[in-house]
Simulated assay, not measured.
Amino acid sequence: MKFKSLVKSMTKVGLGLVLSGTILVSCNDDDDNQMEIPSNQTIASIVTSTPAFSTLSQAVSKAGLGTTLSGNGQFTVFAPNNAAFEASGITSATLASLTAEQTKGILLYHTLASKVASTAVPAGPNAKVTTVQGDPIYVTKDARGVFVNGWKVNQADIMASNGIIHSIERVLMPASGNLVETAQGNENLSYLVAAVVRASQGNTNVANVLASTEGLTVFAPTNQAFIKAGFPTIASIQAADPAVLTSILTYHVVAARAFSSDLSNNQSLATVQGGNLLVSIGNQITIKGKANTSASNVVAPNVLATNGVVHVIDQVLLP
């Protein structure tokens, strides 16, 4: 994949920030960020003239997409505002470190080659839509609004003369690989990777299942989560019974693509292991295993993989 190394590095930046605290996921409309913009401007003109899109404007300029987004074609752009870039852990300095080609790839992942108003967004859930960049996004429309890869459109239908803008709450990042490769690309998940490798030495090739099965959700415990669960070192994981690790790991896997927007309060999720997980949603999303005394926090939701989605959590889930 052309932008694989870029996406891995950007994912690490975002995860590093959210792992230092707890990410909040809100379903409320952000009325304070609603923008009134004349519809006779092009997409590029709206982005460059709107203060809330100044970081996006910097990215458009660096990518050399100003002329394209000022052209006569009809486009749809899912546009992160400044707050969305900040919440995603991407600063002006981060953008400055990228090449024009890398920046262009990220922006084209936010772009569709036709005008799609919010009323025309497929209900889904998680309808697969191909972007100009070539990789898919997953869109859902319901009574709460429109969601892309689990993230909410804060303001839909900003009309432009050559298309439409939907302001979105996070920067969208294309998948860096399958579920195993996604974990391998994050240094905070090295214990999980070791557990997958060790479990695969038993009767079930867990690594192969996670790498090749389409449409999975993995709740991925951090290294510290494994340490808290009684695996102080990677060596201790490598010495564990593969069958025990397989039971634990498959308890973290749901056989469906479930972004944060697909989760609801008091929802019961059936796992591949056979047991169930309990979802709670308040100021944040938590997941509780049957044998856990407390719930695990989702500290980094909606990390896209080519065959599913990863939610990073701060406790190992126990069946």
Score class of each variant (00 low, 15 high):
166 H>G: 15
211 A>C: 00
242 P>V: 08
11 T>C: 15
60 V>G: 03
239 A>M: 11
215 G>I: 01
32 D>Q: 14
126 N>S: 13
282 G>K: 09
216 L>K: 12
287 I>S: 04
168 I>S: 09
114 S>T: 10
287 I>N: 05
311 H>I: 01
222 T>I: 14
294 S>A: 10
208 N>P: 13
113 A>G: 13
249 L>Y: 04
188 N>G: 07
117 A>N: 15
27 C>F: 11
72 N>L: 09
226 F>Y: 11
222 T>V: 14
87 A>M: 06
85 F>M: 03
234 I>H: 07
87 A>K: 02
110 H>D: 01
258 A>W: 08
15 L>T: 11
302 N>R: 01
251 Y>R: 09
196 V>W: 10
67 T>R: 01
232 P>S: 13
243 A>L: 12
140 T>C: 05
139 V>T: 08
48 T>R: 01
269 L>Y: 05
11 T>M: 15
150 G>Q: 05
274 G>R: 03
60 V>I: 10
196 V>A: 08
236 S>E: 13
23 I>W: 08
271 T>D: 14
39 S>L: 07
100 A>H: 09
67 T>H: 03
268 S>L: 13
301 P>Y: 01
315 Q>S: 05
315 Q>F: 00
267 Q>V: 11
133 Q>A: 08
32 D>I: 09
253 V>F: 03
192 L>E: 04
289 G>W: 09
199 A>N: 03
92 S>M: 01
108 L>F: 10
270 A>E: 09
11 T>I: 15
63 A>W: 12
305 A>T: 04
36 E>D: 11
126 N>A: 11
103 T>W: 03
54 S>P: 08
285 I>H: 03
21 G>N: 07
73 G>Y: 07
260 S>F: 09
93 A>T: 08
2 K>H: 12
199 A>Y: 00
170 R>M: 12
99 T>P: 10
28 N>H: 08
172 L>Y: 09
297 N>L: 10
190 S>L: 02
54 S>H: 03
234 I>R: 09
